[in-house]
């Protein structure tokens, strides 16, 4: 099939960017979206142009590297699917696809579709861990975890840190990302001792990185390739409120 692409091209962080049109002819519907971009890039290189830079790695929907907004939807039209797992059979001949980077103040464009998501790492550094020394752990079965808690924690922990939630949010809030990590650790007994400190410092790091506020529209959850539930946002709000009150009352 033949498509028309409108792709965001931006040489580097400081350069002006713009949408450039490309003809994508003879696209096989069995290709993945990124394979389609590979093919376009091979053609661009052969023609002496710069290929479109985009992040990708595992190409099986788990590493979280790939990130592109297609016709306004982060990761494209198929639900619960990263852009690397999206296949061209979901488009039809003659479609016009506008392909942009994940847009957020906290995710500056590095080049073309590549953005800098290191703000996510800084949020995890602020408290997205359990402080346990290597080699100091007790025997694993000495601390039973109710199955439903383990399952709930796993639902949250399946976040791949791609940033689609931020790109989908009109406020570019990172609430779902923060809520997923906090929800994962705060639910488990291993994470309880640091629960209050964790939510306060992770939320502070989120604010500091320039992410916006959550207004509970849940676009984030709708585009999340791992379908992480907005319920974790509620859990984070609850945990945050408790931690703030404790801090106020007890100093």
């Amino acid at each position: 099939m033949d498509l028309k692409l409108r792709v965001w091209r931006q040489k580097n962080r400081d350069a002006e960017g713009r949408l450039v049109e490309y003809d994508a002819k003879d696209i096989d519907p069995e290709m993945s979206f990124l394979e389609m971009l590979d093919v376009i890039n091979e053609r661009l290189v052969a023609a002496g142009d710069d290929p479109i830079a985009f992040d990708h790695d595992c190409r099986e929907g788990i590493c979280g590297a790939c990130s592109a907004t297609i016709n306004g939807i982060p990761h494209g039209p198929q639900r619960a699917t990263t852009v690397c797992q999206l296949h061209m059979r979901h488009f039809k001949d003659g479609d016009v696809l506008t392909i942009e980077p994940f847009r957020a103040k906290a995710f500056p464009v590095v080049r073309d579709l590549v953005v800098d998501r290191s703000a996510f790492d800084r949020i995890i550094e602020a408290g997205g861990f359990v402080s346990v020394r290597t080699g100091s752990a007790p025997e694993a079965n000495t601390l039973p975890v109710p199955k439903q808690d383990a399952d709930w924690a796993m639902d949250a922990a399946s976040c791949i840190g791609c940033g689609a939630c931020v790109a989908a949010c009109k406020n570019a809030s990172a609430m779902l990302f923060v809520a997923a990590k906090a929800g994962h650790l705060n639910t488990l007994p291993q994470g309880k001792p640091e629960k209050d400190r964790r939510v306060l410092s992770m939320v502070a790091a989120m604010d500091e990185a320039g992410f916006g506020n959550c207004t509970n529209q849940y676009e984030c959850s709708a585009v999340c390739p791992k379908s992480i539930s907005e319920d974790f946002i509620a859990q984070l709000n609850r945990d945050y409120l408790k931690a703030s009150l404790k801090k106020c009352l007890m100093g």
């Binding site: 346990v132 290597t134 383990a150 924690a153 994470g191």
Partner: peptide
């Protein structure tokens, strides 16, 4: 032991054990 202590959400039995 180490990974469980870090909060890796391993699959559990109904009794809470791994």
């Amino acid at each position: 032991d180490q990974c469980a202590a870090q909060g890796v959400p391993f699959a559990r039995e109904y009794g809470g054990h791994l």
